[in-house]
């Protein structure tokens, strides 16, 4: 007797009924999950990674944390994502306006100079910088968000993204500068000087735009 004939008519009917029900309940397929309910979560996680203003400052903060003693640098891992969340919440509640464009260049100059000069910061300064930058970037990213978007999901996505970025970049920097020749520390400092230079140019562009408006 084959295994097919072993299926009872009742089980076959039940299976067919279930399959029919599932077919009737099927909704249209969506190629992009962004248009589903979870879209706002992904939007929050990915939105900061689409703009160089965010990318460069996030990178600079991670590099700075990685150049500090691990006991002090690890404050960035908690401070930055929480700052992002605070920025999103405060701006959404109307308590904090989005930062002006000068903040983008200013943040890069400060972080880049701290990196290039290889300044050892106390834990409170590291945490303060992380929270400040987080609040500014969270506020800048939530600004202009559509009313139809879910702010909670958007903020949660950004929190996760900020946590991942802060952890991965600082850990990678620490591993890079610890295991190897002295030039590695110099390379990170050179990256800091580049970031400060980019920030300086961004400040000038923002100033010129302000003057011309």
């Amino acid at each position: 007797m084959s295994s097919l004939s072993a299926i009872s008519p009742a089980r076959a009917a039940a299976g067919l009924g279930t399959a029919s029900l599932l077919l009737l309940a099927a909704s249209p397929a969506e190629a992009h999950i962004v248009s589903s309910r979870l879209g706002d979560f992904y939007a929050g996680a990915l939105h900061p990674l689409m703009a160089l203003e965010d990318l460069v400052q996030w990178l600079a903060l991670g590099l700075l944390a990685g150049m500090q003693d691990p006991k002090r640098g690890r404050w960035v891992v908690a401070g930055f994502p929480l700052g992002l969340l605070a920025g999103v919440a405060l701006t959404h509640a109307g308590l904090l306006p989005a930062p002006p464009r000068l903040f983008d260049g200013g943040g890069m100059v400060v972080l880049g100079l701290l990196l290039a000069l290889a300044i050892d910061l106390p834990a409170a300064a590291v945490a303060g910088l992380a929270v400040l930058l987080g609040v500014a970037r969270g506020s800048a990213n939530i600004d202009g968000l559509d009313a139809a978007n879910d702010v909670v999901l958007f903020g949660a996505g950004m929190l996760l993204s900020g946590y991942a970025a802060a952890t991965l970049i600082s850990a990678a920097t620490l591993a890079f500068r610890r295991n190897g020749a002295g030039w590695r520390r110099i390379a990170v400092r050179a990256a800091g000087s580049w970031i400060a230079a980019v920030g300086c140019m961004l400040l000038a562009f923002a100033l010129r735009a302000g003057v011309m408006q």
Partner: peptide, 15 residues
């Protein structure tokens, strides 16, 4: 390290 920073400062003055 110093050249890009000073050059960017000069660039900012020009901009």
């Amino acid at each position: 390290i110093s050249f890009p920073m000073v050059m960017a400062f000069g660039g900012a003055l020009g901009v």
